[in-house]
Design a protein around this nucleic acid. Structure first.
Length: 485
RNA sequence: GGCUCGGUGGUCAAGCGGCUAAGACACCGCCCUUUCACGGCGGUAACACGGGUUCGAUUCCCGUCCGAGUCACCA
């Protein structure tokens, strides 16, 4: 078999949907697992929907996701150009060839006429093939008169078309269901369907990987390949990624389901690797059911036979789990590095030992965006209620908290070398001497020093990060609060 | 509505004629513990339904139901 070549062919809309990203990922994996090439092609044939800077979004996404393409507009290759608008001139001759062979025809119908064909409210009416049998004279006259036209493919009126998909098997459609689809639009640009076939063939694409939403239009592709006498590529249709609606129904994942763009997800505090890992498993399963994969590992084990047929609902909980796993797997330094912007956001005006902060945060961070809220007490002691000092499990109440704070202040005061170990030993031995369980002493101390019932890390860590001066200050404030209640 | 595809726990899923029907997420309980987490242990929970085929169907076939996708000079 010749070298496997897959292509990711997004249209630049400025938004990278996770469904598209997963398609890109599978295309990449199919190519790489076969030592093949992964090509990026920009499909910008819709001139009305061009968005400024949208191509950069695609580059950036592929880059941060780690999906390196082997050929593309930015890096070139032997099959360029890789932007459809730059290939515009090459499509029309192919269409004209089909016209010549009586497999396509010029259509002069106005949009208004087409519009009037649609019975109101109804769907599925379609084109009435009005221009399909114009005489050559009529066609030539209209062409000469400069009447705007499109080129349509002549679909067979009878029989059926069967195509084979690598995941769904053989699919047959009655030809009567097929419309005489437009190949070349009035503005001279090819339609997506037509450009796709021409490009995939001329770029030697071996595997056409795309979402299931194209399943029902695939017979048309086949007919086009047949009309040209070209070899048909392997089709790989992917099950759709769905989202759950508020009313409990599901539909194709879209913005109303939450963050569905790659960049949105990143903004929400998810790691690129976690996103990739998660979506790799959304519709595909390895033989051994393993879940954690690096991109390279995926390249090793990916196989088309593991792709499932049924649609999958995008589960933010599971994504979160992956994210937490990836965070936990980092070194503390790595975590500190990626978390730094969030540290600064939570604690903008203080210099803390960030690696130490990272150390207590790492095991309890699911999304990076949770960080600022969790650590902002380091910056400024929040207002809090004395009720926080009451905790049944630690056996603390408003009365003994006063005592605990008093002795803690006294003892901690004497520590000259403010190390974690010293703080720890000091408090633990104090609890022992006084004859209370650790929690009874630790709880009020932690509350006083943080002002929160739930904190990242325990009393010792917080005291150490805060430093002696600030710690003593907060402990006294806490004591004051209790006495003045 | 026509056409196409799909249907294993709440979610992702393994299974490809014989199993007490895996595993993961979520959820619940217990343990660990200076809070919350993390970690450990355990638990609740599924083959849409009805016919066939077969000695035997989650698995193969048909029908029903349910869900989704698609029916553009959008991709």
């Amino acid at each position: 078999m010749s070298q496997v070549r897959t292509r990711y062919a997004p249209s630049p809309t400025g938004f990278m949907h996770v469904g598209n990203l997963r398609t890109a990922l599978y295309e990449y994996l199919i190519a790489k697992s076969n030592k093949g090439k992964f090509i990026l092609r920009i499909e910008d044939t819709d001139q009305e929907r061009l968005v400024e800077g949208a191509v950069d979004v695609i580059y950036n996404t592929l880059k941060t996701a780690g999906l390196k393409h082997d050929e593309g507009p930015d890096i070139g290759g032997d099959y360029g150009p890789y932007v459809q608008s730059e290939r515009k001139a090459m499509y029309i001759p192919y269409a004209q060839q089909l016209v010549k062979e009586d497999k396509a025809y010029y259509c002069f119908c106005s949009k208004e006429r087409l519009e009037s064909l649609k019975t109101e409210g109804e769907i599925g009416a379609g084109y009435d093939r009005h221009c399909r049998n114009l005489s050559p004279e009529e066609v030539n006259k209209k062409l000469a008169d400069g009447v705007p036209y499109v080129i349509r493919q002549k679909m067979p009126l009878e029989g059926s078309t069967t195509f084979s998909d690598a995941v769904f098997g053989d699919i047959t459609v009655e030809n009567s269901e097929l419309q005489d689809q437009i190949l070349i639009k009035a503005d001279g640009y090819p339609t997506y369907n037509f450009a796709n076939v021409i490009d995939d063939h001329t770029m030697n694409i071996t595997h056409v990987v795309r979402g299931c939403e194209y399943l029902s239009s695939s017979p048309k592709y086949n007919l086009l390949y047949e009309a040209f006498g070209w070899e048909i590529p392997t089709y790989v249709h992917l099950p759709l990624i769905m989202g759950k609606n508020e009313d409990g129904t599901v539909s194709k994942l879209s913005k109303r389901h939450g963050s569905t763009g790659f960049e949105d997800l990143i903004k929400d505090g998810y790691l690129p690797q976690a996103i990739i890992n998660y979506i790799a498993l959304l519709g595909w399963c390895p033989k051994d059911n393993k879940e954690l994969f690096t991109l390279d590992e995926l390249c090793e084990v990916f196989d088309i036979s593991g792709i499932s047929k049924s649609p999958a609902i995008f589960d933010y909980d599971k994504l979160s789990w992956f994210n937490a796993e990836y965070i936990k797997a980092m070194t503390t330094q790595q975590f500190a590095d990626i978390a730094m912007p969030y540290f600064k956001q939570g604690v903008p005006n203080k210099e803390l030992n960030w690696v130490e902060v990272a150390g207590i945060l790492q095991q309890r961070t699911v999304r990076l965006t949770e960080i600022p809220e969790k650590i902002k007490f380091f910056e400024k002691l929040p207002e809090y209620s004395v009720e926080l000092f009451v905790n049944k499990k630690s056996k603390t109440n408003l009365e003994n908290s006063v005592d605990m704070l008093k002795i803690a202040i006294k003892e901690l005061c004497n520590i000259s070398d403010w190390t974690s170990d010293n703080i720890h030993d000091c408090l633990i031995s104090l609890a022992e001497r006084v004859g209370v369980k650790n929690g009874t002493l630790m709880w009020p101390v932690r509350i006083a020093v943080s002002g929160m019932s739930v904190t990242p890390g325990g009393a010792v860590e917080i005291l150490h990060i805060l430093g002696k001066d600030e710690s003593m200050k907060r402990l006294n404030i806490g004591l004051e609060k209790l006495l003045n209640k």
